[in-house]
Write a protein that binds this DNA or RNA. Sequence first.
DNA 1: GCAACTTTGTTCCTGCGTTCACAAACGGCT
DNA 2: AGCCGTTTGTGAACGCAGGAACAAAGTTGC
Lengths: 238, 238
Amino acid sequence: MTVHQHGRYSTPVDDLPSRAVPEAAVGRLAIYLRVLTSMIEQGVTTMSSEELAGAAGVNSATLRKDLSYVGSYGTRGVGYDTAKLVEHIEQLLGLTRHHSVAVVGIGNLGHALANYGGFPDRGFPVTALFDLDEDLVGVPVGGLPVDHVDTIPAVCAEREVTIGVICTPAAAAQWVCDLLVAGGVRCILNFAPVVLQVPADVEVRRVDLAVELQILSFYQARRSHGRRPVTDPIAVIG
Amino acid sequence: MTVHQHGRYSTPVDDLPSRAVPEAAVGRLAIYLRVLTSMIEQGVTTMSSEELAGAAGVNSATLRKDLSYVGSYGTRGVGYDTAKLVEHIEQLLGLTRHHSVAVVGIGNLGHALANYGGFPDRGFPVTALFDLDEDLVGVPVGGLPVDHVDTIPAVCAEREVTIGVICTPAAAAQWVCDLLVAGGVRCILNFAPVVLQVPADVEVRRVDLAVELQILSFYQARRSHGRRPVTDPIAVIG
DNA sequence: GCAACTTTGTTCCTGCGTTCACAAACGGCT
DNA sequence: AGCCGTTTGTGAACGCAGGAACAAAGTTGC
């Protein structure tokens, strides 16, 4: 799934330019951002809420409300300036600053993540890799040498890691998580199939393959039990 | 994130034993399932709602309500029989039947998924791998030979694939998705950073690394800007 | 410069999901 | 057997998120 571990909401901060942003809206804003950058590459300079909403798969009213959290940067009768909008969303999401990422657990998945290089959509440089396996320590993966997990607190503090990604087996996840927190990391992306226990000021997001599959299984079970008739690959669209 | 693409709800089916299960509850049930199986391995035969809720990181009232969708299988004054509960949740989630999985895009991530072998927590055998790269076609990955993407409709139909996992680059995702749908696949797990357009009866779940990181970035930005002081790795817990 | 059209920003409303709180039920102990 | 403590299951309140609808604003054409 990948949900907030607890049903927490956005932070009720006040001094920042916008009001409290609902959690769900934050996720959608990240999607708008992707759609926008993709459109900009295609030379689109202006989009209406209707167009953007369609591309992102949401209701246009929802989109406008989400954008209102960012501020009023649209032009009535015209739409939104794509470049300007990207700029403001990036600012709201804190993407102007770079976030140093550490990957723990260099197995199959860890390898895959480390090799992403600059990490998807820039702004998230991977600056540390960790594993327990002595044979792996020192070996460069994706151009970065692997460090031993025991050095997590020290290395994370030194390299100012802000986001820790846990790709270890379930059994090691909580331990690794504690080490990351000890190293000052307050944002954790957890791929291990465990519910992590963390202090209140640490944000955990879970990406759980098994849960995803089981949810799909549920929707599959509730249905005209069976598969879809095989169709022509041409006719698509919902 | 990994959300429903649209904010759809559970299916308003009637003949099945339980009432309509809220979408959010389905995700949590999958988590309870994991916690329960883990506890059973440790020899625990009974758990109270409070214990189980704590381990899953949710409110105990929420947990009880979620379990009430499954049916009333607890004993007042005692708690829930772990084995019995697992059985009933598995039934609700449709895990009694096996769900054949196809992985499309055998890059870093696809490799990682294919090598998971039986796929996390059983019940999801990977029965087909696809890629566009001719050099990869025929090569066995995790014991299964890779097929060409062009054969997706035919192979998926033949092997009765129920879940398609898309690990391709963004540009190929929609195309691959259409092929899967053409092959009769109605459940799709999408790792590509794109919003897929699908017919209404196809269920898509998205796992989007970039979005996850950006959400974490947002929460990091809204805070007493900075990292956590480096602490002793021992003192933890929220 | 004015009018008509387009599109935003926002307000209101509806509905779901989460939580609280309590009554019913069950086991254990005397 | 009856009482007491414990824990479930659910009815009701609360709060947030999503969608519809409208008024303000701005642009384009004449």
